[in-house]
Design a protein around this nucleic acid. Sequence first.
DNA 1: AACGAGGGACTTTTT
DNA 2: GTCCCTCGTT
Length: 771
Amino acid sequence: MSGFDQVDLFGGLHAAQARRGPQTPDELVDGLTGPQRDAVEHRGGPLLIVAGAGSGKTRVLTRRIAHLLATGDAEPQDILAITFTNKAANEMVERLVALVGERARRMWVMTFHKAFFRILQYEAEALGYKQRLTLYDDTDSRRLIQELLRERDVDPKKLTPKAVASKISLAKANLQTPAEFLEGTGFYQGPFHQITGEVFEQYERRLFAASAVDFDDLLNKPVELFRRNEEIREAYAHRFRHVLVDEFQDTNRAQNELVFQLTREHRQVCVVGDSDQSIYRFRAADIRNILDFESTFPDATVVVLEQNFRSTQRILDAANAVISNNASRVVKNLFTEEGDGVPITVYGAMDERDEAAWVAAEVVRLNHNEGIDLSEIAIFYRTNAQSRVLEEEFNRAGIAHRLVGATRFYDRREIRDLLAYVRLIRNRDDEVSARRIINVPKRGIGQTSVTKLGSFAARSGISFGEALERAAEAGLTAKAASATTGLAGLLETLRTEAQTLTPSALLAEVFHRSGIEAELIAEQSIEAESRLENLHELINSVAQMEADGVIETIDEFLESAALVSAQDDLNDDAPKVSLMTLHVAKGLEYQAAFITGLEEGIFPHFSSRDDEEQLEEERRLAYVGITRARRILALTHAERRFRFGGEQGSGFSTSLPSRFLAEIPENLTVRLGSAGMPRPSRWNDDPVFERPSDDDGRVFGRPSAFKRPPAPTSGAERLNLTAGETVIHERWGAGVVVSTSGSGEMAAAKVRFADVGEKNLLLSVAPLRRP
DNA sequence: AACGAGGGACTTTTT
DNA sequence: GTCCCTCGTT
């Protein structure tokens, strides 16, 4: 896509400016509001821009950067501008090019992760690494942790790799070392604290040995480096004389520390954020970073942007009303001069099919009758699982749509396999990749041989990848040893070829030579067919990226593959409705937005029921969702909703409308549908919803929805179990309740049985009773 | 070592 | 309905 196409999305103004070339300082503040202008013109000292949703913060950021250049206060290479997603970064670059010309491309405008991965690569040697670094994504690091747990004979039922991975990740995001973790401040203490800490320690060692870094390291290692090596820190602080950070409310401790380390002398730091849009606490974002910015930088100037240029006043009133229920926030009220707009629609559906059918019908109506382009319509939901019914209904209705950020292309097995080869070619010590492809395609190296290679590597103090090359010494069977040697030889050949081949040619070469292609062709199944297609698509898209000049080397390709983000799916601009989670929606805007599944237990999600802070985060998520809409907003909830796939076995639950609906003043909304009026609600262990006597709204959906009988439950969810008491399971006999969680349909208990150990039981299905 | 059948847990959100 | 692991068979 050319710069102009991209910029035109934001109105012809920028394109016109691009033709005129660089702007004078005065032209750059032309048409801005007072506070926006203050933010652009501020000089000398820390600046906090509190930017409400839709208040034009990207505009202010780009103008500010252009203004710094225009006044001669900065050169392009002085600028480090941090965004939350690659998409936001690309947009910002294009807008900057429109304002200041091609020299904008010399600035560092990118995500934290990308910027500091670059810096880490430059400084790998200073950190003691032997070579270029390989980036492990969550799946890779989970695999390494899983392997460590297996080596320690930890029962994966009791301590899952996922749980350990998330504890380690949280610790790292909070800048804790394994030693500090083990000492334990009580924060992460739990029954498996000791073992988790030991695994943490080993994990760090194995990552280092593999010359690999995980997502947390991208932020952690630079912090560590800057702390240890003042010279290096100063060099970067000097290089980036102007640091600007967008979405500052979603930074974690490490990110906050990096900003501080880079700017503490020159203090030319500008952060933009909105504490009401902080939605990443679960991955260690710390809202205090923005709330405490003024105490970190006592001389900070604060600019508040409350005028909204996106939505109608009704939509803003709804957003303001909902968020005002949060206790811990800086009060701010969005307003617009754009007029009231149309009322917000609230549709009460019978079930999730009805909900999806209504959304589909509304989309068709908006598209046909109101002329709203499909690409200007988005459907949001709290959890990915909700997308399926919507997709089915959209397929049935023949509505072009795309799922944004659901199953990532690069997460597919065949893609990961091929990339693992390439990573191993570039980094022979990459243990996770080596383990992944050692028997892909099948070459007769089974679990036993892999274990032997692993312990041989540990004994000899070499990496797993090196062990492959010395398979003869590892005590494998003759057959396995020769297969392993064959693989090592292949990798060596490919390693040489990689010097000269283009990235796409190298991928194609691996595809043929590894035997992955042959194995898939031989399989002759529909599934194998689609895997082949995906691999061809990968190779073609890499060739395209080369042609477009997006990447040049295989390393650049691997980096971009590891750092793709959910919103990157939006890059094709075909007219399609977008479906995405509310988290992915952050930073986007649409003419028409639907938020579905506004039910207690879904949104707010039941996991937040016991925690006021988490509930406030859910509310911020609602605020983010509502403020995505420019003109049309529809909110839906369903009276009943099927869970866990099938109709048999798992059944459905009835749900109360979300409290967030009740928080929106009635005079802003029009209520439709069959499921009755939302009313003030609260968590309820036994939600029984009365049918309204007079239905006057439109009713979509099929009456058959009501014929489905409730699935029989075991009744155990109503036992009101408490920790410590004894229960009888039909198959496993007597057990002791360790803990309980959830309620109603989702009530669960952890029970310890004499024979089978601890089990997590979903009470509505578990055959459980009191003695 | 490979493969298929069967079973259990699972659904919060992701750079 | 799906993923992932285990187990039994060849």
